[in-house]
């Protein structure tokens, strides 16, 4: 009789474990299927999506901070397919009219699921916030200072910026000759 209990226990346990694993795997793949991070409003040059298809501003800046389990986190934003904010946001973009708060898809990090929320004002990203959905361990890193992906603005020419110095990778005395620093030093800016 003991062997019956043992066999039953083992089989049932295996079934339960498999089920648990499946549920977890299904959730993870659902999370991954949703596009990973922010950049919503860009009619970036690489993404074919036109600005007119950009999502309307969601009224929900109240992204579900308690919904780590459910898999449909990709609420409103994230129309562009860019994976990590690589598409350029051109200043003259026709998406200038887009404003609002957009929530990115949930991404799994070692600190638990994290969702990125961006605030767009007239087509420009004015703020990026990382919302931590669960607190894995009270071990929340101060995620508020996390370096989040950000779109690159159009590179400035040195002339167009009023600057007094340049920060760049270390250069040698020879490197200085051809550096921007050298130019602005000579200009006496």
């Amino acid at each position: 009789m003991r062997s019956r209990a043992l066999a039953g226990g083992v089989v049932a346990s295996a079934a339960v474990l498999t089920l648990g694993w499946q549920i977890g795997a299904a959730q993870v793949s659902a999370l991954n299927a949703a596009s990973p991070v922010t950049n919503s409003a860009g009619s970036g040059s690489t993404s074919s999506g036109s600005a007119t298809t950009a999502p309307s501003p969601s009224a929900s800046s109240s992204s579900g901070s308690s919904s780590s389990g459910s898999s449909s986190e990709s609420s409103s934003g994230s129309s562009s397919s860019g994976s990590s904010g690589s598409s350029g946001l051109s200043g003259s973009s026709s998406s200038a009219s887009v404003s609002g708060t957009f929530d990115g898809a949930t991404t799994q990090t070692q600190f638990g699921p994290v969702q990125v929320e961006i605030v767009v004002s007239s087509g420009k990203i004015t703020d990026v916030k990382a919302l931590q959905l669960t607190n894995d361990g009270g071990r929340s890193v101060q995620i508020s200072n996390q370096a989040a992906p950000i779109l690159r603005s159009e590179a400035l020419t040195a002339q167009s910026a009023s600057i007094q110095s340049v920060s760049g990778a270390t250069y040698t005395s020879q490197g200085y000759m051809t550096s921007l620093q050298s130019a602005i030093d000579q200009a006496g800016l």
Partner: peptide, 9 residues
Amino acid sequence: YLASPGAHD
């Protein structure tokens, strides 16, 4: 635990 995404990462 297995059913939570954390176990898959």
